[in-house]
Amino acid sequence: MDKFTKLTGVAAPMPLVNIDTDMIIPKQFLKTIQRSGLGKNLFDEMRYNQDGTEIADFVLNQPAYRQAQIIVAGDNFGCGSSREHAPWALLDFGIRCVIATSFADIFYNNCFKNGILPIVMPPEVVAVLMEDARKGANARMTVDLEAQTVTTSDGQSFPFQVDSFRRHCLMNGLDDIGLTLEKVAAIDGFEKTAATLRPWV
């Protein structure tokens, strides 16, 4: 997993609530057995006509946002299916950070496993960031995970909260499985005790 420390880039405004993972990556693209290559189908049904041509007014098709690295969105981003293909598609497109008023639980977790930083901000801050994002490619936003701030193109800075363990893993690009396997003795011990307490499991 790539480290995430500080990112300065174009933010795409998506002022919609309940952007679900079916929108982010429709089911026909879940048939892959790989993690990579999903970026071209990110937001597929919003981004392309049925004949495969681009829908010009969709935000990521606009010249200003084709290189976006940040998305600013409304409530409950990433709701629905648990498909990790959603963060894989975002990452493959180049998105490293999503800022919204709230996220669905599973999607939120999945982001951290893939080097994407999901940031929860209050509605009034999202409104400011949304406006900044609307300025287009010249307005680059800065997300600093170490300082835990988001800074707009005109220098307004907003703090955000993030779980300390997740922040640590993201900043260092750590592999969860490796970390957990360091506690294998505790897992062995748990299994031994559980075998006595709940032998039917």
Binding site: E84, I106, N109, N110, K113, N114, D176, I177, T180, L181
Partner: peptide
């Protein structure tokens, strides 16, 4: 529900 990275985590640990 869990994502695929977590599926791998549960398989391994």
């Amino acid at each position: 529900g869990i994502g695929t990275s977590e599926v791998e985590h549960v398989l391994a640990t």
